[in-house]
Simulated scan of single mutants.
Amino acid sequence: MVATAIVPQAAATGTSTPDVYRGGRFEPNDFVIAAEDSGGDGLILPLAALRTALEHDGPGNRRLGLLFSPADRLEDALPLLDRVAVLAIDFPKYADGRGFSHAARFVRAGFTGEIRAVGDVLIDEIPLMRRVGFTAFEVRNATTRRYLSEGRDPSPGLHYQPGAVPEPPAGTRPWLRRRAT
């Protein structure tokens, strides 16, 4: 099967990222975006290509993921979510915040798999991405990679408003929430 793919902005630069930041450390990347496909275990496809692959028993026994672009519609992706292991939400540029809303909506719709930020992911956005449901980050920015490698995660420990993911209350003030550790 030949799939045409929307290439995230960072992927278009030709730089490859062999690992993903999740759980406080960099781990081997077990999924690749279709445009960078090297025949690994998992394959992330854009919405139209994923729909076609699932209809035609696509890539054999490979695990599948969905590359959700800013202009994609949530309603089109919902029927496919139970058949994907990873939801990769594209950030084509740092100023495009639609991915934050998409992640929160997928969490509210009941998606419990990995939600991965791909594209232009910067260090100051990671705390906010976690609050709306992102669990993994494909980081290509050199400064962000260095900060995370050095353990310099800027995520605050206390929040005044609830996020999309559950947070336990802190102390006697129910409106003050503590980040889950």
Rank of each mutant, 00 (worst) to 15 (best):
A3K: 11
T4L: 07
A12G: 10
S16M: 01
S16R: 06
P18D: 10
V20T: 14
Y21A: 07
Y21C: 07
R25E: 14
R25G: 14
F26D: 08
P28A: 15
D30V: 11
V32A: 15
I33L: 15
E36G: 04
D41H: 00
G42M: 02
L45Y: 03
L45W: 03
A48R: 13
A48N: 09
A49R: 00
E55N: 05
D57S: 10
R63T: 07
G65Q: 06
F68S: 04
D72A: 05
L74F: 04
L74N: 00
P79G: 07
D82M: 04
R83M: 09
V84N: 03
I89M: 02
F91C: 05
P92W: 07
Y94G: 03
R98S: 08
R105G: 05
F106L: 13
F106H: 10
V107N: 09
G110N: 00
G113R: 12
E114N: 02
D120F: 08
I123L: 15
D124F: 02
D124I: 01
L128S: 12
G133R: 03
G133E: 09
T135A: 07
R140K: 08
N141V: 04
N141R: 01
R145I: 06
R146L: 11
P154E: 06
L158A: 05
Q161I: 02
P162K: 14
G163K: 05
P166M: 02
E167M: 15
P169N: 00
A170M: 10
L176I: 15
R177L: 15
A180K: 07
A180F: 00
